[in-house]
Design a binder for these strands. Structure first.
Lengths: 150, 150
DNA sequence: TTAGATGCAAATAGTTTGCATTTGT
DNA sequence: ACAAATGCAAACTATTTGCATCTAA
C-alpha cells in the first residue's frame, strides 16, 4: 500500500505496527464513507462492494482491532442487539437515541474534557476516547399520544 | 404480585402500564443483585437460579422492555460483541473500560446535567438518561511494556 | 375477563475458529 | 524472508419467532 495516498487513520494503523492490508483498508474506507453508524452486516455489504475478495471474518477482526485502537466504538442503538460501529474522530462520539422510533441524532457538544483530565489523574488511567449516549424520546415521539410505532 | 414488597423499579414497571410478571421480576432482581454489568448469558443463569420456570426468550424480552424504559442500557465491554447490561440508577451510568485487559471501573462524577438541559431545548427531545463510556488503558496496562495480555 | 405476557423449541442470524495460503514490510 | 494477516467454510453462540397457554390486573 502506498504511504502517500492513505488516510490519517490508515497511517495510524501502520504506525501502531499493524499491517495496512487491503481488508483493513476496505473496512476503514467503508466506515469513513458512512454517515456514522454501521452494523457489522451493513459494513460487510459495503466492504464487499469495495473489494469482493474480503472475507467476513476479516471484517470482524478489523473491527476488533479498530476498537482496541480507539478508531471505532461499538454502540447499541434500538431494535437490535447487534452493535453499530461509530468512528471516533478526535477520540469521541456523542449522540441521542430515541427509544421509541430508533432515530439517532448526532450531538457535537463535548463537555467532558475537564472530567477526562481529572479522571486520568485520580485513577491513573490513560483515556484514549469516550462515547456519550443520551436517550429518551425524540421531538416527534414525545409529541405522540399513546403507544404506536412511527 | 404484592405492591408493598416490590422495588421502586418494579413499581415503575407497573405504573408504566406493564404487567409485573414473575419473569420480569426475576430479571430485575438478578440485575439489582449484580455488581453492575451482566451479559444476557450471565443474566439468564442467574434468573434461572431465582426461578427455573423462566424461559430465555422472556429474559431477552424483559431486557428490551427495560431498555425502552431507561431502566437498563446495553453497553460494549471488551472481548465480546455481546452487550453487557447496566442498571441506570437516576437515569445514568458512567464507566471506564480498559481496551487491553477489559477491566471496568465505575465512575461516579456526572457533569452532563447542563449539557442535557441545553440539548433538550435545542433539539426538542426528552432525555430520560445517558451512558458515558471512557476507554483507554488502565493504570496497570498503561505501565506494561509491550503487547502481552495480563 | 381478557389483553398482555409467557415458555417452549425451532429457526435465524451473527460471530468465531482452525488452518492452509497469501501478503505487507 | 517471514511474521502477520487473510479467506474460507464449518462450528458455534446468541437472539428471535410463532404459537398455544397462562396470568396479572
Amino acid at each position: 500500500m502506498n504511504a502517500t495516498t492513505v488516510s490519517p487513520r490508515a497511517r495510524r494503523l501502520r504506525e501502531s505496527g499493524y499491517k495496512l492490508t487491503s481488508a483493513r483498508l476496505a473496512v476503514l474506507t467503508a466506515l469513513e464513507a458512512s454517515d456514522g453508524h454501521l452494523t457489522s452486516t451493513e459494513l460487510i455489504e459495503r466492504v464487499l462492494a469495495l473489494d469482493p475478495a474480503v472475507g467476513r471474518a476479516s471484517v470482524f477482526r478489523a473491527l476488533e482491532l479498530f476498537t482496541r485502537l480507539s478508531l471505532v466504538r461499538p454502540t447499541y442503538l434500538s431494535g437490535s442487539v447487534t452493535p453499530a460501529y461509530v468512528l471516533l474522530p478526535g477520540g469521541h462520539h456523542h449522540h441521542f437515541v430515541c427509544l421509541r422510533c430508533g432515530r439517532v441524532i448526532e450531538v457535537e457538544d463535548c463537555s467532558l474534557l475537564d472530567t477526562t483530565r481529572e479522571m486520568e489523574q485520580r485513577l491513573g488511567v490513560h483515556v484514549t476516547g469516550h462515547l456519550v449516549e443520551f436517550f429518551g424520546l425524540c421531538a416527534n415521539c414525545a409529541a405522540l399520544p399513546a403507544e404506536e410505532d412511527s
